[in-house]
Design a protein around this nucleic acid. Structure first.
Lengths: 275, 275
DNA sequence: CAAGCCCATAGATACGACGTATTCAAGAGT
DNA sequence: ACTCTTGAATACGTCGTATCTATGGGCTTG
């Protein structure tokens, strides 16, 4: 009869013996089935899936240079090394492939692509790179990007910002003033990030708006990179207040020029040659 | 009718009411060879995989608004509708999820996310949107982005461009001059794209360099959008030549200013308010 | 030594089974 | 009557296996 047992409950038959060899290394089905997983999840960081876990392992490893371009990863090797099934590996590889971090070819394996193919605007990739070894380089690239985007965004915001957005802007600028002295860098950072996020959103351009997260990461990185002890530059604080004012009054050229001063200052902090 | 049959594959008691799609479980492997005729995949020979085919169907459909945000797609429905297996659907959903186009949640399905979540810098997404209904809107967004990026990139290029890059730049500028008259728009477009690509690459910033493809798509879209009959604006051609010259002589402010004139002109063509 | 054929290999695709989280609703408790 | 708990239904998550296909290397042959 062709039908083996469709009801799983009964037979623990010996035909799985072959599979045992592979299965015994983890006992994955049963292991997860027990309450074990809950304890595990309770203590450690929140891993909401094997897929996310593997991606969080492979992504930073690749962007961090642990696998130089040209390195070939085989799926079964990844399968064993990370103790996940083929399905998980394949889905993760597909995602990495969509980021152009790797290329999967038959008979060859999963090849790590050179840096110039990477989709460097993917927030995930940005986060991985900022967390990795070439963080300084990434920070410079992104700061230069900011210097191009934000002044234009501020100019547009001056024309298009709603009353609510102007109010938000002023509020965060005042918040920056209030936290600019006395080792309140955390509070300052929050207002700084919110300020730039509002500017980008108020520009009315979705491409600009999407950079809010990137700018936030850059500001965070900058803060925890070189200061933590010195208060923010008073000139920068003043500039933010003035930008808020320029946006509120609809003075686009002024908003753009002032924001350009802000980003120029940000570049100077990183020793980037200013135009 | 409570649970009387857990088995999905064997059960014929779909309480669906519509018999459509029942043929799917019959001979999947052979079905590909036959070419059922339901889908005209005989025409598009570029499909080197079911994964790519499904992605090319779903991606544009989502970005094009065929599935408004909040729409729930169930995996088994996609399975039937596109006549592919669960594996393929899952991998495609993972990729779409990595682009933040959809979100997959247990017990609810694959939900289309609102536009503001989309990873609008993903070249794939950009291509889909440019091919879709909101092409004009997308073209405007990208042109504004260009207006922010390219002047800064040109300024950096004036400082950092190698001799080879300067030569390339001059060559393409001359190519634009040569093709600027007499219905040679295709050749003009090639040089135009190459010119801006060299500028972005010569800026030395990887974030800028990666926008070469985007700019190329914008230029292509613009050309085939509103002209095809009129020759390029002579002023724009002159500006490109001057930019090449400014970069060659290392005059960063001039290169930046001239490029800003170019992008301002590009925005004017799309009736975008210029600063 | 070079060119072409053969086959081992590893990814691509498929499919069914089971696990698990989440949602909805019914029922118990206050 | 309202709320909280708990159970069931459901649709995604994960896994193991089987088969297919393309490809690269090795072998054979001229």
């Amino acid at each position: 009869m062709t039908s083996q047992d469709q009801g799983r409950g009964g037979g623990e038959d010996e035909t799985r013996g072959q599979g045992r060899g592979r299965d015994q290394d983890r006992g994955r089905g049963q292991d997860q089935g027990q309450g074990q997983g809950q304890l595990d999840r309770g203590q450690e960081r929140e891993q909401q899936g094997l897929h996310a876990r593997l991606l969080a392992s492979l992504g930073p490893a690749i962007t961090g240079g642990a696998y130089p371009p040209g390195t070939v990863l085989r799926t079964d090797e990844l399968e064993r090394r990370f103790e996940v099934s083929r399905t998980v590996v394949r889905e993760v590889v597909r995602v990495l492939e969509s980021m152009h971090l790797v290329e999967s070819r038959r008979r060859v394996g999963v090849t790590v692509l050179p840096t110039e193919h990477w989709n460097v605007y993917d927030p995930q990739v940005i986060r991985w790179r900022l967390a990795g070894a070439d963080r300084p380089r990434q920070l410079r690239s992104l700061t230069v990007l900011r210097s191009a985007i934000e002044p234009v965004a501020a100019g547009l915001a001056a024309r298009l910002a709603t009353a609510d957005q102007c109010a938000e802007l002023t509020q965060h600028a005042l918040g920056m003033v209030a936290t600019s002295r006395g080792q309140q860098l955390e509070g300052y950072l929050v207002h700084d990030m919110a300020f730039h996020r509002v500017i980008l959103r108020a520009s009315g351009n979705e491409m600009f708006a999407r950079l809010g997260d990137v700018v936030a990461e850059v500001l965070t990185g900058r803060t925890e990179h070189h200061v933590m002890f010195t208060d923010p530059d008073p000139a920068a604080v003043t500039l933010h207040v003035q930008v808020a004012e320029a946006v509120r009054t609809g003075d686009a050229p002024r908003a753009e020029r002032l924001t350009r001063e802000i980003t120029t200052g940000a570049m100077a902090e990183l020793d980037i040659l200013a135009p």
